[in-house]
Design a protein around this nucleic acid. Structure first.
Lengths: 230, 230, 230, 230
DNA sequence: CCCTAAACGAGACGGTACGTCACGTCTTTGA
DNA sequence: TCAAAGACGTGACGTACCGTCTCGTTTAGGG
């Protein structure tokens, strides 16, 4: 799991010889990386600036992550807060609107700048896009199963309904509007819900979307190499 | 619109004093930029390499575009061929798939890497939004009216149908997938069309979307500085 | 004499066809060059700055002088003021002191900066040294003949005395002190006069110094190509 | 004296952390600089050429000297051989001539082109004056005491004679001639010795010159930044 | 009185060097 | 051992000149 660990990973940490790594460093480094990312974008994340602000040295950074790409990806996976409260307004339309509003707010706050920064990085370095896909935590763009099940229970959706339309569309549309600075106000959100999301969800008989979902949070049983926990 | 002599804005370009720019240079430079972009990505576009391969000097490049970002953006806007042929496969589903494929292809070519740069810039400079409009518009991000009218005529859509769902969703979803490197293959496209686009379009009674359309940049008589036509 | 004249040099200027050169330009250009030289040194003299400040174009400058070197050399020869008043204090020592004080003052004023600038240029480009030697007007470093003759008449110097010692030594010593910022005050000047100049002048039987004198003003019968009167 | 850690100034260099500078690099760089200087003059010293020929990188050069000027100045100070042998020709005149010839030779080599840069710098940075002192002092600009004493012993000079006239005059005159490119050949040197130096030295009763001696720069314990010993 | 040749301003052009910055690696000392 | 500090080679960045060139526009004077 760790990026540089010797393969077997013994059950007990096995007390490797030599001075142990300061566990606080990784945290400090990732936090600094996140700030820089949010403040001024991907290009402002320079390894020297990160090291300086984290109060450590470049070598210490490179010892943990092989390059800038990996550092940034790890930083993104690192950022998390308390899980948002459940949404339950009593109607599917209300739930969808609430979820969209929450996402829109997130994009409007500083984390939104982070999304920009990430996409910037992805534009510069395609491999970073890959990493992001595996690494990035969820952005709120998924339709929670509970919401879906409640809607089915209320008879608002057919039993065959899946969350696909929401997952794919809501995140994309809002992120892109955030990027272009287009307004994301309530009238717009209602329009999106009424004209796109509800019809699409109601259509129902969509099988599981082929391929991985956009912005799929890393699930616990993911086997992909993980650069986020050095 | 013109970057250099806004005040009187003469009908004829008014023959600025001094030696006129060699019109071939800009072309050569942009072409080289596009090749490098396609061959090896954004970071492979170095101003010196561009100048060298274009058979000119760095100064000549910088005289036209203030920095690398602007050069690359201009190069993207530069690349165009004959307007793509109308889409008419005989069915709405076929038409939608064709349009999505065309857009996906465009984004799959390395230019996709740069869409984000444009999007970012668009927040600051409306003229870039304009550029996106023209570029994306020509490549399938907009549902052509003809296609819509034919579908209505065939009875596949209600008369009240609008192009909104396609305009908003298709571009966003594909651009974002391109940016993160997620696969955009035919199964995915069919799924998108069947599970989102067709249901949403069929829903029909969507009025015009409130607020400005995505990618609807400045209008032609806007005086904003234009870095795309040096 | 003229740098670009056809060889024979006809008695009448021969009225070349075409628009004649604006005689004011050369003056303006040279003046600007001198200011820049004095203000900020040789490297601050850029052809574009000169042209801009002189209210002309680079082409007009290059039409008159082939390159920066020549322009600077010409500018130096151009600078002149009213001839300084004669020195006559009644004694050789007094005269020498007065002359030294005058020179020291000149070097301390802005013209002094010019001397620095020149030497800067000479260090960068040996050919400029050559040009300076032929071009540069006198800097006050020569011992006027009248002063010498009066001293001989008063019996303070032998009839065989020449101005050599003064010409060679006074200028060199003071210029160098100016360059290093060493103080050039009255005690120092008296010491120089008493300990070096008077003994050397009194020695007397020095023939004419071999080779051209340092800082010798261009004499009328000089055959060297002259870049100062374009 | 050290440029980087003035505050505590430990007796032993104190083993700064981090990889120590490769001591061979500075040497290689300075040697290359000197060659370029000698081969083709100041303008031929380009930082990239220096780095290339020294087998290093521009960054390594700039890490040691802040700019081209400083590099060149340091290179001059760097060039030294074994201390020149004592001068003893048997006569004062012969000794003076030998000393002048040695100085003229030094100035005639391309290093002379740069003396002016040093002189200029000396006005701003006393440490450079110091450097001049050592450099020029070793090459003949000072009249060695031995020579003076021998001349007094031979009866060629009065016991009151001092080295002042030589120190002040020889250096100045020769440096300035070198700068302007005036010829410094044997006839000229003999003339200088016979017409100026010998009479002035013979005059004798010159006390020590008031004010600081020319080229007497900062003393060794001066805290001024020192750009010559990176 | 027009014609023609040159001067003039503006600025494009190919070069070359400058000094800065970041990357990712290497090499020390000290904990 | 590893942490820390920082030197190292590479290579791009954007700026500033240099000296040359090409425009379109003036301005004399000679036919």
């Amino acid at each position: 799991m760790s990026y540089r660990n010797p393969p077997p990973r013994p059950a007990q940490p096995a007390a490797r010889p030599g001075r142990p790594r300061d566990p606080g460093k990784a945290d400090a480094i990732l936090s600094v990386t996140l700030s820089l990312l949010a403040e001024a974008g991907y290009d402002a994340v320079s390894m020297e600036r990160v090291a300086a602000r984290a109060g450590t040295s470049k070598a210490t950074v490179y010892r943990r992550w092989p390059d800038k790409r990996a550092l940034v990806a790890a930083a993104i996976g690192h950022q998390q807060g308390p899980p948002p409260p459940d949404v339950d307004t009593g109607s599917l339309r209300g739930d969808l609107l609430a979820l969209c509003r929450r996402l829109a707010q997130m994009l409007g706050r500083s984390e939104g700048r982070l999304v920009v920064a990430l996409l910037q990085g992805a534009a510069r370095d395609p491999a970073l896009g890959d990493l992001m896909e595996r690494t990035a935590g969820h952005t709120g763009a998924r339709l929670p199963d509970v919401v879906l099940r409640r809607a089915v229970a209320r008879g608002e959706l057919p039993a065959t309904a899946t969350s696909y339309a929401f997952d794919e569309v809501a995140g994309s549309a809002l992120v892109l509007r955030a990027l272009t600075g287009a307004p994301v106000d309530d009238p717009y959100l209602e329009h999106l819900v009424d004209a796109v999301l509800l019809p699409a969800l109601a259509h129902g008989d969509a099988g599981p979307p082929p391929g991985p979902a956009l912005f799929a949070g890393a699930t616990a049983d993911d086997d992909a190499p993980d650069t986020t926990t050095p």
